[in-house]
């Protein structure tokens, strides 16, 4: 009973502190989301769709401090990065390396980065990757078999594999 009374006497200062905590909570969560968000970058060195921008003959790309990757015309490679902002060092042939800053769209897991477009500063050089024909994920029906109130989960001993087909409960 007393607790209820105390609860109702929350002063403005206390409300402020609580509100502040809630804001901090959400801010930390958003920060974790942005800083931890992993992206898979597909790096392209291909002609653009309309053919206006040509792929490079030979280009060497370094993302952040990862190992440099060599591309011939028409190549595509992939790498995984964390967070949105990246420094990309591009070295075309024997020319001086060019450093570019790239911001990835936050809510995409897989993006396509076109090196020729980036060098030509043609938007959009980063596009969300949409697979042409999505391969069906491997069959997995295991999610359907849940033991009724099984107190034995992960570490449950798997029963010896039965040679005879096990019957299902009627």
């Amino acid at each position: 009973m007393n607790g209820v009374n105390k609860e109702s006497k929350v002063g403005p200062r206390r409300m402020l502190v609580r509100g502040g905590l809630a804001v901090v909570y959400i801010a930390v969560m958003v920060m974790a989301f942005i800083l931890g968000k992993g992206h898979k970058i597909l790096i392209d060195n291909k002609d653009s769709q309309d053919g206006a921008i040509k792929a490079f003959e030979n280009v060497n790309v370094t993302i952040d401090s990862q190992d440099p990757i060599d591309f011939m015309a028409g190549d595509r490679d992939q790498t995984s990065v964390r967070s949105q902002w990246h420094t990309i060092t591009i070295k075309v042939g024997d020319q001086q390396p060019v450093v570019k800053k790239v911001t990835l769209p936050l809510n995409e897991n897989v993006v396509l980065l076109s090196i020729p477009k980036l060098m030509a500063n043609v938007e959009p050089y980063v596009v969300p990757f949409v697979p042409a024909d999505e391969p069906p994920p491997p069959a997995d029906n295991s999610g359907n078999s849940n033991e009724f109130t099984s107190p034995t989960g992960t570490e449950a001993p798997a029963a010896p594999t039965a040679p005879a087909a096990a019957p299902t409960n009627p």
Binding site: F148, S150, P151, T152, A159, P167, N169, P170
Partner: peptide
């Protein structure tokens, strides 16, 4: 009635039903 003797961990859940 069921037609099978179920051993090992099968009896675990039976009391609950």
């Amino acid at each position: 009635s069921f037609g099978f003797i179920q051993l090992y961990t099968a009896p675990l859940a039976m009391p609950f039903s």
